[in-house]
């Protein structure tokens, strides 16, 4: 528990910092005898996982923190072996079935069935059900989501689900209606500031409030990132003062540079260079839809108002094609080329 993010993560429901209304709701849910399926959603770094862990602790006590990392092996109907890492305790199991791609349906079914077949050992003292935590449900295929909806009802006596995802839009309606949806919204800037201040004080660093304000603004409501940013700065200098450049992740900087290149010159050579850079980003496992949105975020402010609609339209179209196709580089490069053409047309006349 050495990174500040891990070290100062609240572990009990009472110690949660912000979203106090939500905390009250969670408390009341846990206090009741009957625990519903939960669907926790909200932006990255808002504290979904922290809250899930708090709920689990509240349900089962500290025993839930004794986890082991287990690699489970599944066999597909076509006899392929799949490996998936899960976090197990006596009371719950955590997994991110999106990792196994198209075979997630089998994983979901197998795991839940396995969990549900054994009821709680000591059902008198404990809650009569176990919990399956599924991360990144929005990356699940349709098949897997439909498989979930049946199993959720069938095994609801012995097994409850906590689903977590960033956006509800890719979760099918039947799942949403079976769960109690809990939105964890990102903390406001002031809230981030006060949390940062507390942490920094505990770590005995000097800090000016202005720097904290800058950090919390640059983190866009992502508390995880804000804490990491602060710690990175602390690793560099003994004293935290204003005027320090706030570190951003390399991949974002790299894409920003790429966007700068696109805006500077629009010709074949630039396109080739951009292709190289896109390959670079793709090869380091950054998903293509993230590349799209980051590029758009950097490109849009430089466009004239009348071009903006068209640019967004272009991006939407190429991203749609990307979803249908399989080679991301084609569509990314096609978008860049189309953008260059549009930019030339509108800005040079």
């Amino acid at each position: 528990m050495a990174l500040w993010v891990d070290k100062y993560r609240p572990r009990e429901i009472g110690k949660l910092d912000y979203n106090n209304d939500l905390t009250e709701v969670l408390k009341s849910i846990v206090a009741r005898e009957d625990f519903p399926h939960l669907l926790v959603y909200g932006p990255s770094g808002a504290g979904k996982k922290t809250r899930i862990n708090c709920i689990l602790k509240e349900l089962y006590g500290s025993g839930v923190e004794r986890t082991t990392l287990v690699t489970k092996t599944f066999t597909t109907p076509s006899n392929r072996k799949l490996d998936l890492q899960t976090v197990n305790s006596n009371y719950h199991i955590e997994l991110a079935p999106g990792d196994v791609g198209n075979y997630d349906r089998i994983v979901v079914q197998d795991v839940i069935k396995e969990m549900a077949q054994f009821s709680q050992i000591d059902s008198e003292k404990q809650k009569p059900f176990k919990v399956v935590v599924l991360h990144e449900v929005d990356t699940l295929t349709r098949d897997a989501q439909h498989a979930l909806r049946r199993t959720m009802e069938k095994y609801s006596r012995t097994c409850r689900l906590i689903l977590s995802c960033e956006s509800l839009s890719r979760v099918i309606d039947p799942l949403r209606s079976r769960c109690m949806a809990v939105r964890v919204s990102a903390p406001p800037t002031e809230e981030i500031e006060s949390i940062l201040e507390r942490v920094v004080k505990k770590e005995k660093y000097d800090v000016t409030p202005k720097l904290l304000m800058e950090i919390s603004e640059k983190s866009y409501g992502n508390l995880r990132r804000a804490l990491l940013m602060t710690e990175t700065l602390a690793a560099r200098e003994q004293k935290l003062k204003e005027g320090m450049t706030i570190v951003e992740p390399d991949w974002e900087l790299y894409l920003r540079e790429t966007a700068g290149m696109i805006l500077k010159t629009q010709n074949n050579e630039t396109l080739l260079k951009v292709r190289e850079r896109l390959y670079e980003v793709l090869s380091r496992c950054i998903p293509s839809n993230i590349i799209f949105s980051t590029l758009i975020r950097e490109l849009l402010p430089a466009c004239r108002p009348e071009a903006k609609v068209e640019v967004i339209h272009l991006a939407a179209e190429y991203q749609h094609r990307l979803c249908k196709g399989s080679k991301a580089i084609f569509h990314l490069e096609a978008f860049v080329a189309a953008f260059m053409e549009l930019y030339c047309r509108i800005h040079k006349t």
């Binding site: 528990m1 990174l3 993010v5 891990d6 990255s44 770094g45 996982k49 986890t67 990392l69 890492q85 899960t86 976090v87 955590e94 997994l95 991110a96 990792d99 991360h135 990144e136 992502n222 995880r224 990132r225 990491l228 940013m229 710690e231 990175t232 690793a235 560099r236 570190v247 992740p249 390399d250 991949w251 496992c285 950054i286 998903p287 993230i290």
Partner: peptide, 23 residues
């Protein structure tokens, strides 16, 4: 494979690892 890393891959890749290397 490490226990603290948790399970969801993307937040790790987007936020944690880039900073971790510098920390």
């Amino acid at each position: 494979g490490s226990r603290h890393a948790g399970l969801s891959a993307l937040p790790l890749l987007f936020d944690v690892y880039p900073y971790l290397v510098q920390i």
